[in-house]
Structures are given as structure tokens and as C-alpha cells.
Design a protein around this nucleic acid. Structure first.
Lengths: 192, 192
DNA sequence: CGAGACATGTAACCTGTTACATGATTCC
DNA sequence: GGAATCATGTAACAGGTTACATGTCTCG
């Protein structure tokens, strides 16, 4: 139940409404955890009944009322103890539909496999472009002046860039290999 | 609903019971997709009512009867069309509890952060040991003699090894950096 | 004699997605 | 006039986990 912890995390920065949190998610946390608005609203209510957050209605004129949530001390300590807890063994690549496809793609012709790999390269490129955009926001200001949490998010972005770069390199090597095999096979067909 | 496709994939190799499939999962697919036995049994029943598989009861003496499943033509074509379908944009690191922790770990002292990173290195090492074990099964026999599906699983294992190696390198660099900072801070405390 | 493999499943629950409902304001 | 933003939510469903139930055989 880590959506709960993601919510505690964003609320630890400042009080927010469900709507604010959703936008915050879309803007900053979504690349490691995302959730739909209805899931966020539901979870916030459950967290309130568990005493981790408190809500206050704020009336507005011309716009719907807002329901602002704030952490309780219980919420803060739940967040801290989760952050520091060391959970044993988590699978590193669980539930990745691309990897599952690749596991079975030997059934399909090489041309289909190449299509799959190229599509994945495009996904990786998109992710990397995002990291670059986010990282460039940091480089303006001298790093040591950032609050600790932001420094860590900077480290995280650098890590994901390095990891995804390795994936990209692997995909390109494989694509190359397959294209040469395919080219050789076609050449044989023509000359033979 | 990709559990369904994972099940179609393993059944495409040979007919199996739910129990066999669970063991097959634990042995081979689990590093990209895993599922509990009860989920497998339930999904197989649903797939039968959708016409993707057929089951036959096989009586045994002294042991419970087995219910063996086989693909129908509809199941085969569902598998093939899924494998070749190109799904747009999937987030590469969604729902990874470690990354989420790291996102917020600036709240905790550096020593806790180091603990988290070291625990992750241990997880990565465990995964890499597994890849090596699986890869060594391939090296015995000349690779070109393997069926296509196994060749692809070999590529996949190599890829995950490369990706996880990149993660490991990043973690070790970070740990190093932090240890030096910590050492410097302590040194200052002593001399100051 | 107890633990674990073999083999099937049900029931309850938690988590996540999609579609729908409401209603004013602002921008094109 | 229509779409997007602001802001809350409900309802239905899909996917996944955990605990429980049943009963035999085999191995140490």
C-alpha cells in the first residue's frame, strides 16, 4: 500500500487538496508512482479515518469548495518509519509488459521483434528526454543550496538516466545484430 | 490483463495444469511476471469460459486429480496478436517502492539513506546472481541450436544483466560519495 | 511423527482503472 | 458555442494478495 506513502510524502512538503496532489503527482512523482484522481480521493478519506491526515473545507466564491489535507503527527511518523524500513527482496522488473512480450517473442517473425524493440527505444527516449528536462531545472542554481529532499530527487533522476541509458544501449546492440542477420539472410536468398 | 498472456505463453510450450504452471512461473517467468497460485487457478477458469483454453481432468491414484489445460486456436491467436501488438508509452519505472522511498528519503538522516542504498545493492546482487545462473545454462550448448524462443530469453537475460549492472554502478557511486561526505563532516567535527 | 510435495480451489480483502455525475468559470 | 480548468466524488469492475480448507504420499 505505497500509494498511501506517496501521499504522505507530498503532504509532508505542504498541505494540499486531492486536486493539488494529483497535479503534483503528474508534475513530479509520476515517473516512479502514479495514481488516478479517484484513487487519490478514496485513499485520502481512508487515511483520514485512520488518523494519518486531517481535512478542512475551504469555501471559495465561483469555484467548488476545496478540501485541504494536512498530516497529523501519526501521519508524519508513519511516513518516517516507512522511509527508513528496509523491505527485503523486491523483484526489480516485475509486471513489465514489454519484458513479458520479449519473453515470448520468439514465436513471432524477426520483423515483428524488431518492431517491438524499436517501439521500446522510442519509449526509453521519451523517458530520457523527461529526465533531461527535469535535471536542467537543477543545474541553474548551485546544487548545495537545494534542500536535502531535492538533492535526493536529483540523484534519483541521474540514476534513472544511467539505468535507462543502459537499456537503450542494449536495445540498439540487439537491433543491430538482428538487422545484420536479416540482411545476411536476404543476401543469401538473392545469391543462392 | 497480462497474466492472461503469460499463461497463454507457457501453455504454448506444452499442456499443463495450474500447479505445473505455478512451478514453471517460479522457475522461469517470475523475474518479469509472477502470480500466486490462487490467481492462476482463477484466471485459467476465466480463460476457459472465454474459449482460450480447454481443460481435461486426469485421474491419479493416491494423488489428487489433475486438471490439464491446452490452448485452443483462439488462445493461440490471442497470444500471437498480443505479442505483436505495439502498446504506446508505458512508464519504465512505475510502482517501484525503492524508487519511491528514495524520492522522499531526504527527510531521513544520511545514515538511513546509506542503509537503504546498501539494501538495494544486495537486492541487485541477488538478481544478478540469478541471471548468471540462468545464463550459464545456455552456454553449454552452442547457441544457434536453441529454439528461437530460448534465444530470445537469452537476449532478455543479457539485457536485464546490463540494466541491473548500470543500477549497481550508480548505487555504488552514490554510496561512495555519501561516505566521503559523512567522513568529511565527522573529520570537521573532530578538528573543529 | 512431522514437514513438505502434490493438487485443487473458495472467500475476503486490498489496490487500481474507467466511466459517470455535477456545475461554474475562463479561454479560444 | 465548445473545450479546458477547477474541484469533488460515486459505482462498477479488473487485477492481485492472503488466509483458509482438504487429503494423500513420501522422505527424513
Amino acid at each position: 500500500m505505497s500509494l498511501r506513502h506517496a501521499l504522505l510524502g507530498v503532504l509532508s512538503v505542504r498541505d494540499m487538496t486531492g486536486y493539488d496532489i494529483k497535479r503534483q503527482f503528474d508534475r513530479s512523482v509520476h515517473f516512479v508512482w502514479n495514481a488516478s484522481d479517484s484513487q487519490i480521493y478514496r485513499e485520502l478519506r481512508d487515511m483520514e479515518s485512520d488518523g494519518l491526515v486531517l481535512s478542512t473545507w475551504i469555501a471559495q466564491t465561483g469555484k467548488p469548495s476545496r478540501r485541504a489535507y494536512q498530516l497529523t503527527p501519526a501521519g508524519e511518523s508513519e511516513l518516517d518509519s516507512w522511509i527508513e524500513s528496509l523491505n527485503g527482496w523486491e523483484s526489480l522488473h516485475d509486471k513489465d509488459a514489454f519484458l513479458l512480450r520479449m519473453f515470448f517473442i520468439g514465436r513471432a517473425p524477426t520483423s515483428s521483434a524488431l518492431g517491438l524493440l524499436r517501439a521500446r527505444v522510442a519509449d526509453v527516449d521519451k523517458a530520457m528526454a523527461y529526465y533531461e528536462r527535469r535535471l536542467s531545472e537543477f543545474s541553474d542554481i548551485s546544487r548545495s543550496r537545494h534542500p536535502r529532499v531535492l538533492q535526493w530527487q536529483h540523484h534519483l533522476l541521474e540514476g534513472m538516466r544511467a539505468i535507462d541509458q543502459a537499456q537503450r544501449d542494449w536495445l540498439l546492440r540487439l537491433i543491430d545484430e538482428l538487422e545484420q542477420e536479416q540482411g545476411a539472410a536476404q543476401g543469401n536468398d538473392v545469391t543462392g
